[in-house]
Nucleic acid binder design. Sequence first.
DNA 1: ATGAAAGCGCTAACAC
DNA 2: GTGTTAGCGCTTTCAT
Lengths: 345, 345
Amino acid sequence: MPRKRVTIGDVAARAGVSKSAVSFVFNDRPGVSAAAKERILAAAADLGWQPSARARALSRSRTQAVGLVIRREPELLSTDPFFPQFMAGVEIGLTARDYSLVLHVVPDEKTERAAYERFARESRVDGVFLTDVRVGDSRPREIAALGLDLVVIAPEGADAGGDVVISMDDGAGVRRAVHHLHSLGHHRIAHVMGAPGYVHTEARRRAWQETLAELGLPIGPVVTADFTGAGGARATHELLDLPQPPSAILYGNDLMAIAGISAATDRGIRVPEDLSVVGFDDVPLAPYVVPPLTTVRQNVVSWGTAAAQTLVALVERKQAPTVQLPPVEFVVRGSTGPTRNRRPA
Amino acid sequence: MPRKRVTIGDVAARAGVSKSAVSFVFNDRPGVSAAAKERILAAAADLGWQPSARARALSRSRTQAVGLVIRREPELLSTDPFFPQFMAGVEIGLTARDYSLVLHVVPDEKTERAAYERFARESRVDGVFLTDVRVGDSRPREIAALGLDLVVIAPEGADAGGDVVISMDDGAGVRRAVHHLHSLGHHRIAHVMGAPGYVHTEARRRAWQETLAELGLPIGPVVTADFTGAGGARATHELLDLPQPPSAILYGNDLMAIAGISAATDRGIRVPEDLSVVGFDDVPLAPYVVPPLTTVRQNVVSWGTAAAQTLVALVERKQAPTVQLPPVEFVVRGSTGPTRNRRPA
DNA sequence: ATGAAAGCGCTAACAC
DNA sequence: GTGTTAGCGCTTTCAT
């Protein structure tokens, strides 16, 4: 059980120097002799002392912490493979620089706004990440107005309005998926969109459409859903009810795709014999559904790390390191196969 | 864009009072006239002022923040429905008292230990949650030695060594599952355990075993796995390779159960006709696999809220509110059915 | 190279 | 009731 809190004064006394000398050593600043430095470090180690983040935050006017606000409906919260991985990546970038992550999980827009306000007003964090960007999103401006540094995570090509962006190439994955289906002979390729309004939803739809056009395929039917299982099932029934149902469906995420397989199976439609299905995310369950899901995998952890490094650099007004983000992967499993209905391409 | 940071002094000046008056008002302490209070609140609102968490933390020697360390192997990270829901629940309990959550995601034990040390040494948080408790876990003692307040989240009956515990009744869910299978006529009911060493893994196994004994059923075969899909599949093959394979398998979580269905299907064994499968967690995908998964659902969000309220009370040395935790639910779907092999009970 | 001292913005004794 | 003032533990300028 620790006695009274040991402070910089104790360390200074033990090392026979002034408090500023100790401070200098712990901030990698010149002006302390090698001998003194040695004694100081020894004293600190003996006493088990480490600068108090509280006191430091006050005197430096920086908390050495950044914030992340997660807005998610309960249903989607534990579904989304994004946040856990993103946070794990963020952590890697943050601990390397001794930063902490302050998290808020909020249910709606009002609470979300309040969370950013609190971050700024209470000076709890120096900067924040912004994810789940929507089309015409006003939050970047609002956050900047609060005086917080900001790094936006958005798909490539999204309108960022001058903000610092870590972009992920959603389009590349979709293009590979469409090419894969095309090479299997499909030419009626539908798309089930995620929740409308998100730049991700849009980016994926656009890539689907453009790739079909490039390949000279007809722009297949598209249904708007909401990233949930129920929504994916509903959309699938809608597509299969069409007079001319698609032979392949590309879904905005894995959850909808898996629900889609289930919906098709219920109708007696076999996957992949009668219908090919492609997801997006590669959730851990994807290899274990029946049939195993063909899907797009992105390296979310690496975005997290890149975003964290960039935000820290921004906060410290330093040059952000240029990070090389690994490319998307396309994972072919059992849910896609050749068409039977039509001649191969 | 905000000008210079507004401080308590500005508010005091504008309201024509002293700083302490302002401080008193913002800490709900008596000793300020109604009139003064009104002027102070008005002034604060005009200036958009709010006490700085930084300064407050220093002078109160409390940060008004609590910490959560998540240790997870990459593979399991986005698989586990627990943490997102738990965090959402924690948030509810925390924001109500204006506390923040500081999060660390770590890959291994060494880093985990370092995270708690940093929490304490840097005085970043006032208390922490401890999850994923292992049998004979030394962390409660270590954390207490660091001077951090602690709330442990563990299944009922786990040895807590005097710590404050929010307990969830894993056993109740398992008992209902076994009774359900028994009522369907199964009497060879196997169990696939999660990763060894965790109190959850143990609690679930024990409940399975005790319930079988109560029902006069033979203690079926049990295989230790690791909560992963691959592990679940492997365990399933092992059980089905037995000279006398079980007619039902109870898995330690949904991911293993779903992988188990997949493994069985691959061998031409139909679920639920030839084999009944029960999971644990009720992940969002559970209703959408084929066949839909029968499983145990716990209200993780409510534990999070209870844990947060308890930790805040602990930190503030107040009486913890007694929280009523909702009971487990058992969700019957399509992956369980009557035995064909043997006579019904 | 080293030390003294003035903040950082708030809380809480204490005196008025 | 209300104002004054001394911390909280560190950083950082400025003499020495």
